[in-house]
């Protein structure tokens, strides 16, 4: 079942008045339960593509469909509601809120959704158990290792049962062992809960696990998977 479709997406940035073409006529589809990797060298447009899929950025040309719904003319607040309900984000630098504990970080987006206190606490604790990070509940990010922070970030990304999770080079700052552990975890979530993941990476460990692989070069998809 198709959840994302990009049609003829181009993105041109203006860098001090000089146009930079980051994406050129990109077409792709992502289905429910996919484990997608977008690979390519630095500067090939991976982050740009992910941002456009995640409605954080708008394409210069082309259309993004989320569950067949065209996002092109949506307002800012509509997009942010869509992100809150349907998309989870995992960042290279983890980007947990530093003033909140692990538990609170996970609860935060449920709070934005308006879930009552008790329910979100229960859900957060449950997901932490599943991801084996329950003992981090009351720690602040600066008291956790990178791997631990990224696990909390995964929990935050999936706790609202999103349609898909976007992860921009999630393992780039982690050592091999930790990275593999994290990937195992996400693969497990993909297999057990049918959560759709979309990665950007030039890390072989990540690419090897792809169910679907797109290779970007100079803003164009060069394989037709």
């Amino acid at each position: 079942m198709e959840i994302i479709r990009l049609e003829n997406i181009s993105k041109i940035y203006q860098d001090h008045g000089i146009p930079v073409q980051a994406l050129k006529d990109v077409n792709l589809e992502i289905d429910k339960g996919d484990f997608v990797v977008i690979a390519g060298p630095s500067g090939s447009g991976k982050t740009t593509l992910l941002n456009i899929i995640g409605s954080l950025d708008i394409p210069t040309e082309g259309h993004v469909f989320l569950e067949r719904d065209n996002l092109t003319h949506k307002k800012k607040r509509e997009l942010s509601a869509i992100r809150l309900r349907k998309i989870g984000f995992i960042f290279q630098a983890y980007n947990l809120l530093p003033v909140l504990t692990a538990l609170e970080n996970i609860e935060f987006s449920m709070m934005l959704l308006g879930l009552p206190d008790k329910e979100r606490h229960k859900k957060a604790m449950k997901i932490m158990e599943e991801l084996d990070i329950a003992e981090l509940a009351n720690k602040k990010p600066n008291k956790m290792s990178g791997g631990q922070q990224q696990r909390v970030a995964v929990a935050r990304a999936i706790v609202n049962d999103p349609l898909l999770v976007l992860a921009d080079e999630p393992t780039a700052n982690l050592d091999t062992k930790t990275a593999n552990g994290l990937l195992d975890l996400m693969q497990k979530m993909n297999e057990e809960k049918n959560i759709t993941f979309v990665f950007s990476s030039h890390d072989k460990k990540v690419i090897d696990r792809a169910k679907k692989l797109f290779i970007l070069k100079d803003g164009m998809i060069v394989n037709g998977n």
Partner: peptide, 9 residues
């Protein structure tokens, strides 16, 4: 990050 995870402006 807050904007990404869907916090309204």
């Amino acid at each position: 990050v807050l904007m990404s995870i869907g916090m309204k402006n």
